[in-house]
């Protein structure tokens, strides 16, 4: 069975149909790309998946359990983590603290762990944060305020913060947004190591080289509708997709 299944998912805001009858299934261990022009509903889909907005139609199943309309904190505890396109770090906390605080309420953590100020388990968890900062190349920035980090570091910190929750499904919203080609290549490397142990990822991105490099399959949204789905090579050659990305000449003239 697929890890994530959407059938007929819709979300409307007033008269606007931001998502319209989306069917999707993402298999365990897959890196799934989500692309489409601005305003096509990609981030809305993330928000619906994470419970920020309930879907106005359809059904979402995470590992078989229905999650449509479940509050975000419960969905998060079911093993879903995300990053944000417009970066939601806590600016007046250090990089370390930003990651550390996200460990909260991982499966198996109770009230005693929340009140703990030391102890073996807490020390182990802190080690884990340090290791993650190391892995995301932020070890040297450990004590820097998140708000003072350059943008690529902030994006990496968001990924570290999501990873520390040990998610089964990780949603990355434009992980390479605003990055130079070199930084984008580094990000692709990081995402590959993140996906290596068989973790399931959904990635929103505009940079096609990144998408075709890391994704097993992808899906294209346009005006809230799914217009194509499949392996990158095939989808990116699809005339409908090219049409969306190269502009609709027929309508302009």
């Amino acid at each position: 069975m697929a890890l994530l299944e959407l059938s007929g998912v819709g979300r409307r805001f007033g008269a606007v149909e931001a998502l319209d009858a989306i069917d999707l299934s993402v298999e365990e261990g897959e890196v799934f790309g989500l692309i489409g022009p601005n305003g096509s509903g990609k981030t809305t889909l993330f928000n619906v998946l994470t419970g920020v907005y309930p879907p106005s139609a359809g059904e979402i199943r995470l590992d078989g359990a229905p999650v449509g309309g479940v509050p975000p904190e419960r969905i998060a505890r079911m093993g879903l983590a995300r990053t944000f396109q417009n970066l939601r770090l806590i600016p007046h906390m250090s990089a370390f603290d930003n990651v550390w605080l996200a460990q909260h309420r991982r499966p198996g953590m109770g009230m005693r762990d929340i009140l703990a100020v030391g102890g073996r388990k807490e020390r182990a968890r802190r080690e884990e944060v340090e290791a993650l900062l190391e892995r995301t190349g932020l070890a040297g920035r450990r004590d820097t305020f998140a708000g003072d980090l350059p943008l690529p570091d902030q994006r990496r910190l968001e990924i570290a913060r999501a990873l520390v929750r040990q998610p089964r499904l990780l949603l990355l919203d434009e992980p390479a947004g605003g990055m130079t080609p070199l930084e984008t290549r580094e990000m692709a490397g990081l995402i590959r190591t993140v996906a290596a142990p068989g973790r399931t990822l959904i990635v929103i991105e505009h940079k096609m080289d990144l998408i075709s490099e890391i994704c097993d399959r992808l899906c294209v949204l346009d005006f809230g509708r799914k217009i194509a789905e499949g392996p990158p090579g095939r989808v990116l050659g699809d005339p409908k997709v090219l049409d969306v990305y190269l502009g609709r000449e027929d309508g302009d003239d």
Partner: peptide, 11 residues
Amino acid sequence: ADRLLAETQGI
């Protein structure tokens, strides 16, 4: 600092 962030972190 960020209520929505707190929610998406399981709080």
